[in-house]
């Protein structure tokens, strides 16, 4: 009898965690580190914060647009989203048959992602916060020096259609966070702090006029091609853009500090 009871409790518990796991957050212990871009190897300090374990899923975003109809694809205004916003959805509140409930949500704009996080009392991570967590592999908080780690990330960049996979299908890193590499690119709150115009025709010397002080920005880690690619992507984005392989996850400040 006791064992049955235990089994039942265990099953309920396991089931409950399975339901909750999508929006589960873990604590990230902050520290000062040197990101890819910074002046004279300038360190940025990261405060403690909580990060979503997984990227936001189709299922979660579906629940969000049901609650906030202004973010449904026929209602979202042009200032905040481009034409391909939620393009593959069958309707305002229906996914397409080939879209899995627990695949990461993509084709969302920065405005939509920001609003989603805010409605949950969270926010988007900053570039520095995201990069800080993303430099960890399974065992180390900073795995940037590991050759095979960079190779692993770069091999993902070559893999097609990884956005069709489900959350949790890549590795769990040092902070117990999944899917930072290998699934989708992710929005950051200050992606527009990356000062590359992103358009090859524009990235010439005359463009210096467009930016004040841009000469002060250097790459501190020229070996880090993978990070270079992420910064390049961010530099090319505009906030209303939506892309098939661009999703997001939320973070929250640690109020106990």
């Amino acid at each position: 009898m006791k064992t049955i009871l235990r089994l039942v409790i265990f099953t309920i518990f396991a089931y409950a965690t399975a339901i909750n796991c999508q929006s589960k957050m873990v604590k990230i212990k902050g520290k000062a580190y040197i990101p890819l871009y910074g002046r004279d190897s300038m360190k940025v300090s990261i405060n403690d914060f909580f990060m979503d374990v997984y990227p936001v899923t189709n299922k979660e975003f579906l629940a969000f647009v049901k609650k906030y109809p202004k973010w449904q694809k026929s209602n979202a205004i042009k200032l905040f989203v481009d034409e391909s916003y939620l393009r593959d959805w069958k309707s305002d509140t229906l996914l397409n048959s080939n879209q899995k409930l627990n695949s990461p949500i993509t084709n969302i704009s920065w405005f939509a992602a920001k609003s989603y996080c805010e409605c949950l009392g969270k926010r988007l991570p900053t570039v520095d916060e995201w990069e800080y967590v993303a430099m960890a592999d399974e065992k180390m908080a900073d795995a940037r020096i590991q050759k095979n780690y960079n190779a692993f990330i770069l091999s993902w960049y070559e893999k097609p259609k990884s956005f069709n996979q489900t959350i949790g299908s890549t590795f769990k890193n040092y902070w117990n966070v999944y899917d930072l590499h290998g699934l989708v690119w992710e929005w950051t709150s200050d992606f527009n702090s990356v000062l590359i115009s992103g358009e090859s025709r524009k990235d010439v010397d005359t463009d210096n006029n467009l930016f004040c002080g841009s000469a002060a920005i250097n790459a501190t880690d020229l070996m880090n091609y993978a990070a270079f690619m992420r910064y390049a992507i961010r530099g090319s984005l505009k906030a209303k853009y939506t892309m098939k392989n661009l999703g997001f996850r939320c973070v929250k400040d640690d109020k106990t500090n």
């Binding site: 000062l195 467009l210 930016f211 004040c212 841009s214 920005i217 505009k238």
Partner: peptide, 28 residues
């Protein structure tokens, strides 16, 4: 800070604090 980020995004203006009192920013 959030309001300014959002407004800059609407204008497609990019900016970054490079040290206190000093920013890189697009001139638009």
């Amino acid at each position: 800070e959030i309001g300014v980020r959002e407004f800059a995004n609407v204008l497609a203006v990019k900016y970054k604090e490079i040290s206190p009192l000093d920013f890189s920013h697009s001139n638009i």
